[in-house]
């Protein structure tokens, strides 16, 4: 899987029309400049040799090349930004789960009442709104009109610095969490409804278990299984959402780095962030798989 992602980024770096040199140096570069650029970056070598060097650098030194724009190693640029993005992703996903699961349960308990319909309507609306619009409306109403939170994200350079400024962190986290909440609570509702129609629930009710006991002891645990599946599946979408979110709030994470790289035609940096984002998705999916085993005892990995 990792090998596949590596191959995709390698291929992408070689399909730039007019060659990487034209992309980096601009349309008015002289043939001499292009030749020397190709020589420095090894683009004049045979393709298999380039692939070998690329893999060797990647495996031994995690070398992702140098940014065209700032000439710094892509690796350093990414590693200075990655922890901040992970903070954002972690906080917002946790928040989304904390909000979405009780909401979904509430909708099941109050199913087909006004509460249920209102919440369903709200989640449809949130889901259909572009992320950046949610972010900007939150800024407008909670930071500009009412000075509850800061307009911009924390600009501290360290993770600790970012966490030390919670007023600035609230809106980016809230924005990223909102679409996830919409999707998760809808899914939680339908998955709980499914579970509640099953035979063992009827058995539990017949035994005289109280309503809340049936709901929380019997239904919730099975309802959570599909949420964990969904969590694993939506990690790429959440990581993508972070790019827009960080751009809206000027949050100094990997998403903003990627966005700026795109504006500057900085292909090595773009491919580097794409590669790292893919790795974080793979790791995230692994975590979801482990959670799977925690939530559902029927699933056990490599026990025997």
């Amino acid at each position: 899987m990792l090998a596949g992602v590596t191959l995709v980024t390698f291929v992408l770096s070689h399909v730039i029309p007019g060659g990487a040199a034209r992309g980096a140096l601009g349309a008015r570069a002289t043939p001499g400049q292009i030749a020397s650029f190709n020589q420095i970056n090894g683009y004049d070598l045979p393709l298999w040799d380039q692939l070998y060097r690329y893999l060797e650098g990647l495996v031994l030194h995690f070398n992702l090349g140098y940014s065209y724009k700032s000439n710094e190693p892509v690796k350093d640029l990414i590693f200075s930004r990655l922890p901040k993005t992970l903070v954002l992703l972690g906080l917002s996903t946790t928040l989304a789960l904390i909000v979405a699961i009780p909401l979904g349960i509430l909708q099941v308990v109050r199913r087909n009442t006004i509460v249920d319909y209102l919440l369903t309507a709200m989640s449809f609306l949130l889901y259909a709104m572009p992320d950046f619009l949610i972010g900007l409306l939150l800024i407008l109403y909670l930071a500009v009109d009412v000075h509850l939170f800061s307009i911009a994200a924390p600009d501290a350079s360290t993770v600790a610095g970012i966490l030390a400024d919670p007023r600035a962190l609230v809106l980016p986290v809230l924005t990223l969490a909102s679409t996830t909440v919409a999707a998760f609570s809808r899914y939680m509702r339908s998955s709980m409804m499914d579970v509640l129609t099953q035979d063992y629930i009827r058995t539990a009710q017949a035994k005289g278990a109280s309503k809340s006991r049936v709901l929380y002891r019997h239904a919730l645990r099975n309802g959570l299984i599909s949420i964990v599946t969904l969590l694993g599946l939506s990690i790429p979408a959440i990581v993508s959402g972070a790019v827009v979110d960080e751009t809206v709030f000027n949050y100094p994470g990997m998403g903003l780095l990627t966005y700026n790289a795109a504006l500057n035609n900085d292909v090595p940096l773009l491919l580097g962030t794409t590669f790292v984002a893919a790795i974080s998705v793979i790791v995230g999916s692994l975590v979801a798989d482990v959670l799977y085993a925690v939530v559902d005892p029927r699933i056990r990995y490599a026990k025997r």
């Binding site: 990581v239 993508s240 790019v243 962030t273 984002a277 893919a278 998705v281």
Partner: peptide
């Protein structure tokens, strides 16, 4: 699937 959509789209 492991490549987040926006990153691929941006690239």
């Amino acid at each position: 699937l492991a490549l987040p959509g926006i990153y691929l789209l941006l690239t």
